[in-house]
Design a protein around this nucleic acid. Sequence first.
DNA 1: CAATGATGCTGTCAGAGCAC
DNA 2: GTGCTCTGACAGCATCATTG
Length: 300
Amino acid sequence: MSLNVHHLELFYFVAKFEGITEAVRKMPYGIQQPAVSGQISQLEKSLGLKLFHRRPFALTPAGEELYDYVYPFFSQLDQVGGRLRGEETQHLRLAASAAVLRNHLPQVLQAVRSDFPDLRLTLREVKSTEIEAALQKQEADVAVTILHRKTAPGLTSIKLLELPQVLLVPKNAPITKFREVVAKAEGPLISQPLITLPPNEQLSLLFQAGLKKRDLQWDPSMEVSEVGLIERYVSDGFGYGITLNIPGIAWPKTVRAIRLPAADFAPVVVGVLHMGNLKAVGNRFVKVAQAYAKELMKAA
DNA sequence: CAATGATGCTGTCAGAGCAC
DNA sequence: GTGCTCTGACAGCATCATTG
């Protein structure tokens, strides 16, 4: 025997407002207390069990379970209506790395907000390896991330800028060029401690590809989850780090950045990813991000 | 095919029952 | 007594089977 959805809706309000009378007062439409009481009785009768104790109000275990089940549906009905009516046009859900969210998006979003005064934002920190999945699951509208040669089907990528790979060394390190590191190596093996992102990150892949081209081997001794940590541990003397040179962003005084030869160590491409067609606010975001990237490159 | 009546569901109003 | 809940009587509406 299936449950009556109208009964479930009334039960949702009764459980939410903790009582029949309170539910009647606060419900978004007019209904009298006896009607609610009667409908709830029918629901309980059809289930063959009590859903809540009346006075004082308390959900029974069965009531708790049913409330947990119906809550996500009824609590989001208003928002769904708004979305269907197109009232969500000024909502932008963004996915990006922590570094991008912290260092770059504030300025870009400031500009977007001047065109969309009612802009509502959802910013989500997502690892670059999980960003495509987040877009495909519709958990975000747009992502700013490192682009691969191949993006997942259905995704559109827009290139913003290319960032050169750099070797980050402590300020007092006795080298100024990458070839000096190589010169100190015993054969192809570089033994200097190395700090990198996880091996499946695009930056790590491109760096290892560059080493391979030069028949070098340099295995990381320390793996960190975000580029900000590389700076930190390099300046604390844990080793040299592989990171990106972002124009306009100054390095801490405790480290120095050494450019890796671009011929072998390909720059990392950063861009915007999205699925399907973007709303106006999404398109505006892309335009502003492109302008911002252009300014950054000029500053380089 | 349209009209009719039975049935079921949900609603209101008035008022009774009950706990504090 | 007060406030909350339930019960009973009755109305409006939709559906469905029956009837002419």
